[in-house]
């Protein structure tokens, strides 16, 4: 396994028919940093995440994934990507254990009962709920399972698309804390969100998109007030 330590995005362009979703976006993501990708709906954030996840093909531009200076491609890249989105990416008719066993099998990681139980303890999924099918879970429980799913594969590139949607305040703050732990563990974390409070003081890198263009980029930690000011002055 080659953990990714750098992702270079160069002049990325994506069009859907005559609509331009991204117009020449360049960005560099590095290990141990959390990048907040901000912007209004339709700014191109989800498209950029889609391209980073290898599930959307760009029309122009290059994304290169690197590990110790070597380029990584194909399945080796996908092995390193973890995804957490508004949708749980979990099967409603399977239990928490069965969902995680499936992922462990597909990724070739330890899917033993003990390993899964430890992971579910870590994300705080109620022990009684683990043998119930996931469609009976509350939104918060489902998001904990989704987080367990993302953590199981020990990703070095974690892509998050509105992960705080539907979570209560405590749930959002707990998730924000987990993301901080991952970032401190050396992962590249990219988070697309409108919930600036949940990511305040955790981001090391802020990028703001407007109508498919990168209109602001800076590295550093940002308080909630500062993030809000930045967002309002650049995203509009």
């Amino acid at each position: 396994m080659a953990a990714l330590d750098q992702v270079q995005i160069k002049k990325l362009t994506k069009r859907y028919g005559s609509e331009r979703a991204l117009g020449g976006v360049s960005l560099e993501l590095t290990a141990g940093k959390m990048c907040a990708l901000l912007g209004h709906n339709g700014a191109g954030k989800t498209t950029l995440l889609g391209i980073l996840s290898t599930l959307v093909r760009q029309n122009d531009g290059v994304v290169s994934y690197r590990s110790n200076g070597n380029e990584v491609t194909g399945e080796a890249v996908r092995r390193e990507i973890g995804m957490l989105a508004h949708a749980s990416l979990c099967y409603g008719e399977l239990t928490a254990h069965e969902n995680l066993e499936l992922v462990a099998g597909l990724y070739g990681v330890d899917g033993s009962k003990a390993a899964l139980a430890t992971l579910l303890d870590r994300v705080g999924l109620d022990a009684k709920a683990r043998d119930r099918v996931a469609r009976t879970y509350s939104r918060g429980m489902l998001q904990r399972l989704a987080l367990a799913r993302a953590l199981l594969t020990r990703p070095s590139l974690l892509l998050l698309d509105e992960p705080f949607t539907g979570l209560d305040r405590d749930g959002a703050l707990a998730l924000g804390e987990q993301l901080g732990v991952l970032r401190d563990g050396g992962a590249i974390v990219v988070v697309v969100t409108h919930d600036l409070e949940a990511i305040a003081d955790r981001t090391d890198h802020v990028a703001i998109l407007r109508r498919g263009q990168l209109v602001f980029e800076d590295r550093g930690s940002y308080s909630y007030e500062k993030l809000k000011d930045l967002y309002h002055s650049h995203a509009n």
Binding site: R79, L89, Y107
Partner: peptide, 13 residues
């Protein structure tokens, strides 16, 4: 339903 096709396509298989 839960965007699981995306999860399958993202798997390193």
């Amino acid at each position: 339903e839960n965007d699981t096709m995306r999860a399958l396509l993202l798997a390193p298989v």
